[in-house]
Write a protein that binds this DNA or RNA. Structure first.
Length: 193
DNA sequence: TTACCGATTCGCT
DNA sequence: GCGAATCGGTAAC
């Protein structure tokens, strides 16, 4: 999905983004995944067919978006963490007036959903439907890809399931998840595996 | 029913 | 680097 295009259509206009950073969340085998403890009303979309959008609300103020990636009945999704705005820059800036430059527009999962105008009403939409307000298109070329630990995740920190486009300035700074224990060494981001 | 904390961001020190 | 904002899921009482 790195390098793929996301188009977000609304009455206000269209914003297009090229994905440069994603994270995998692997259902029943992954303690950090929302679907780890089984199906609920909130995570139901993750258990559905691939190519649909799973949107959830975090920290009482932000939305994050995932692409469902497993076969129907098996939970799994990829969190969209960052993108490069390649269309609709004016609308993107209108939605994120705090952004000081183009790089900051969609740097971070909640910023990305803000720029695309994604909220809970988009939960479950089919990204492969040409009529859908949110659409996913295949990348033209495969970019140089790097791998490392996921950002802000406390559980399963050993799983190197974050992927990003090498050198993309929109990629989030690494942040460790959970609380820090005294004497616990702070590990930085792995740059490759 | 209550308490805790998160797949975050922003502002201030 | 640290804390606030803010709400809903989850687990414990």
């Amino acid at each position: 999905m790195l390098g793929a295009r996301i188009e977000a259509h609304s009455p206000q206009g269209t914003v297009t983004v090229r994905l440069v950073e994603v994270e995998a969340y692997c259902g029943r085998d992954d303690p950090a995944s929302h679907s780890y403890r089984g199906r609920t009303a909130r995570n139901a979309v993750m258990f559905g067919p691939a190519g649909h959008l799973y949107v959830y609300f975090v920290y009482g103020m932000h939305f994050c978006a995932n692409v469902v990636c497993q076969t129907d009945g098996v939970p799994g999704a990829v969190l969209l963490r960052a993108g490069q705005v390649i269309g609709g820059e004016d609308l993107a800036l209108l939605r994120r007036p705090g952004a000081r430059n183009a790089v900051e527009l969609a740097r971070g999962p909640a910023r990305l959903t803000t720029v695309l105008g994604i909220d809970r009403t988009h939960n479950g939409v089919d990204l492969t439907d040409p009529e859908s307000p949110i659409r996913l298109y295949h990348r033209d070329h495969e970019p140089e890809i790097r791998v490392g630990p996921r950002v802000g995740v406390a559980a399963a920190m050993d799983l190197p399931w974050r992927f990003w486009v090498d050198g993309a300035p929109e990629v989030s700074a690494y942040r460790r998840g959970g609380r820090r224990v005294s004497g616990d060494p702070l590990v930085g981001p792995a740059q490759s595996f």
